[in-house]
Design a protein around this nucleic acid. Structure first.
Length: 440
RNA sequence: GGAGAGGUGCCGGAGUGGUCGAACGGGCCUGACUCGAAAUCAGGAGUACUCGCAAGGGUACCGUGGGUUCGAAUCCCACCCUCUCCGCCA
């Protein structure tokens, strides 16, 4: 009789927003959900948690009885006795099976209820929707052109850098070929960003471009459903990753780390695939919103007390990169309704894009999130303090070092010149092997 | 993709139906010895959940999921993974 599975099923559901403390933190969680504009039936979850706990206690007690009974059967028994003993054993087994089914059913419900609860929200996060962000600072000055600046698509077409028509022919709408110096630019940016991260103590990775649904789920993505951003591979239990955050987060799934290896700073280079379901009609010209791009991603695992400092560190690195690329940007504190379920707080870098909108506009180029223990709970990533007995969940953070779709937009648009050429920022020249693209 | 071997605790590695949460060795922690260290000796130590103020109990876990049995690390089935060989291939 294998009874472990049923217990582990139950235990697995605890690895989210901790169901045990659900009741104690009810008001805090309710307030966070309200600020996010997410409707969650907290009381149902709490009620269910209690029901499952009670069932679980009964089941454990039954297991204890069963063990005692089995211990009694170890000595030699007369035939009659043996028969009686076996019958009682079968009865206990049936009863356990019935209870197990009940626990499993209740646990599935609890799991669904708890999974729907998003992370808490940092007290300083502005409350509201997409437009209610708080601007924290601006760096750099938007360039003043003595001519009418083009958008990146027009620049790229003139310089023969991208081919969306060919992309559509081969793969469909919003797929594209990079061409000529755009290829060199992508590689140069990758290597440049990687060097910045190496300098900052990151361990570099090239990650798988696919991951199992359970990993996606642990990170907080919902791979199924009509509005999903995630491609699934037919006939395989695999998804194309939307970011290396997924694979880097999965790297330490179910591990217990030593306190002294923290913080861990990981840099991941991967392709990113997004269905962009429901994104039709949004500002998405050219490379801004595409189905595939490359990205150098930062991922960090820290002790709980270190995550806010790490969050600042990630943003500082992003700023260092865009400063070196001589691109004006601003940093925003993303509003509660626009955080996504895993994030406790999120800082975006928005670069100035002269070709965006009527006369230039800010466009998101990076995003850094502190997910506290939300992902760690779902993935089972823990650490143990020196001399400590119990393990604790780590905090996870992620941030974009450079997205090779949007960073090139900012470079092309900000550094374009009247003759149609694009000058290359000094920091990038050694990587690109030239000072200028074009004119042609 | 085909054939074979194997998945046990931090590591190595026993264990083929109850005496196994698991021998033995290494590593690790504590103590003794030492001026100190090495060596040696003694002791300790898995993970998670749960009951309890605590001391201390209980339950589960030997790749995963099922099955047989009163009882499974051990027997049966399926799957996953690793290694070796063959084929194919960038």
């Amino acid at each position: 009789m294998r009874s472990g599975a049923i217990l582990r099923l139950w235990f697995s559901s605890r690895a989210m927003l901790d169901p045990r403390t659900l009741a104690a933190r009810r008001d805090e969680i309710a307030e966070s959900c309200r600020r996010r504009g997410v409707a969650v039936d907290l009381d149902a979850a709490i009620g269910h948690q209690e029901r499952v706990a009670a069932l679980q206690t009964r089941l454990q007690d039954l297991y204890r009885q069963r063990n005692e009974h089995q211990a009694n059967g170890k000595r030699p028994l007369a035939v009659k006795e043996r028969e009686t003993h076996a019958a009682e054993g079968r009865r206990l087994k049936d009863e356990a099976a019935r209870l197990e089914a009940e626990v499993a059913e209740a646990d599935t419900t609890l799991h669904a209820l708890v999974a729907a609860i998003p992370n808490l929200v940092h007290p300083d996060v502005p409350t509201g929707g997409e437009a209610d962000f708080r601007e924290l600072r601006r760096r750099g000055t938007p360039p003043a052109f003595g001519f009418r600046p083009l958008d990146h698509l027009a620049i790229a077409e003139r310089l023969d850098l991208v081919d969306f028509d060919a992309g559509a022919r081969v793969a469909g709408q919003k797929w594209y070929f990079l061409k000529n110096e755009a290829v060199l630019l992508e590689l140069a940016l990758q290597r440049f960003a990687l060097d910045v991260l190496l300098e900052a103590g990151f361990t570099p990775f090239v990650t798988p471009d696919v991951a199992k649904p359970e990993i996606l789920d642990g990170i907080g993505y919902n791979p199924r459903g009509p509005e999903t951003q995630i491609y699934s591979i037919a006939n395989e239990d695999l998804c194309l990753v939307g970011t290396a955050e997924i694979t880097l987060g999965g790297l330490y799934k179910d591990e217990i780390l030593d306190e002294d290896v923290l913080p861990l700073r990981l840099a991941g280079l991967s392709h990113c695939f997004r269905t962009e379901a429901g994104a039709a009609g949004r500002e998405s010209r050219g490379l801004y919103r595409v189905h595939q791009f490359s990205k150098v991603e930062m991922f960090a695992l820290t002790r709980p007390e270190d995550s806010e400092a790490m969050h600042d560190e990630l943003v500082a690195i992003e700023e260092r990169i865009f400063e070196a690329l001589e691109i004006p940007y601003r940093v925003i504190d993303v509003a509660s309704g626009d955080l996504g379920a895993p994030a406790y707080r999120k800082f975006d870098l928005e670069a100035w894009m002269p070709g965006r909108g009527e006369s230039g506009d800010w466009g998101e180029v990076t995003s850094a999130s502190n997910c506290t223990d939300f992902q760690a709970r779902r993935l089972g990533i823990r650490f143990r303090r020196k001399g400590g007995k119990r393990s604790e969940f780590v905090h996870t953070l992620n941030g974009t070092a450079v997205a090779l779709s949007r960073a090139p937009i900012a470079i092309l648009e900000n550094h374009q010149r009247e003759d149609g050429s694009v000058s290359i920022p000094k920091a990038l020249r050694p990587y690109l092997g030239r000072d200028v693209i074009g004119p042609r």
